[in-house]
Design a protein around this nucleic acid. Sequence first.
DNA 1: CCGAGTGCTTACGTTAACGTCAACAGACTG
DNA 2: CAGTCTGTTGACGTTAACGTAAGCACTCGG
Lengths: 159, 159
Amino acid sequence: MKANANRAAAVARPRSGIPGTQSAPVPTENELYGITELAREFGISLRAIRFYEDKGLLAPRRINGGRAYTRRDRVRLGLILRGKAVGMSLAEVEHILSLYGDHGEGHAKQLDYLVGRIDEAMQELDTRRRNIEAMLGDLADAKGQLQRTLALKRRVRKK
Amino acid sequence: MKANANRAAAVARPRSGIPGTQSAPVPTENELYGITELAREFGISLRAIRFYEDKGLLAPRRINGGRAYTRRDRVRLGLILRGKAVGMSLAEVEHILSLYGDHGEGHAKQLDYLVGRIDEAMQELDTRRRNIEAMLGDLADAKGQLQRTLALKRRVRKK
DNA sequence: CCGAGTGCTTACGTTAACGTCAACAGACTG
DNA sequence: CAGTCTGTTGACGTTAACGTAAGCACTCGG
């Protein structure tokens, strides 16, 4: 267990890796996470995380053979899981993730295209939301009907 | 093609089945549908519909060996597909469908229980909806950022 | 130096949700 | 009466999304 914490810290903080080699202080964007750390945080298996990587949804750097995730990776993982919770396939999630990239350099044409894709994605999500709202409405109806039946039963019984 | 329409009608309307045998006019709840009819209407395959039946989500009566679906079946099929669109598994859909049943006879205890289940289902759906709204928000952010970048590019170019 | 703990890769197994294919039955249609 | 259409029942194939297991590497505390 002690080794556990140490190991995790070793992956998380390069400064405790090989002393001297990683002395260059990267200005921003530090904070690396280990795979178990992320797995625990999000309540999923290591296997699942590696699977997402196989599918190209994550691309952690390698430190000493082990995977090291940045904050950005962490955010992406969150988006992946949220996408799944929303009922999207990993392929769809990948598609949406591509809309978040570092397109700071893209040509205007490409950026326009991206905006279009985002609009599409938003419309699909909206459709999904409407479906959910329809189901919620139906369930509310069913519930109301049940409760009316219940009220009748109770009234009869009281008499 | 003519045979098609005739066949479909034969399944849909018992009066053109075996003349004389089906002369008793059922008061309400007529209108039967054939499997291809439903498949076309909902844009799914026959195989899928039969599959849902295997899974216990549909239980059409049999007329002459063929499946005959009532309006109620049609509604259920709609719910199934909507459930799927919402990201539910068939098992979850089945669970929800059970909340719509003809519980006109149930004991008050059971009806109470049902109301509870419905509430649960509604809460889960609400969670899903919130997730979708979060994604929509994220996408809107991404879009806004893109558009600002675009505006800058255009302004520079105009100069 | 060794065993525990963590991680990596490879490969095979599994479940859900169908699709595809084959072979066949009944009923019109011409 | 042969052909076409619609429908039925298996059996097998497929894709997605992992789970499980095996075997090896590394690293740290004792």
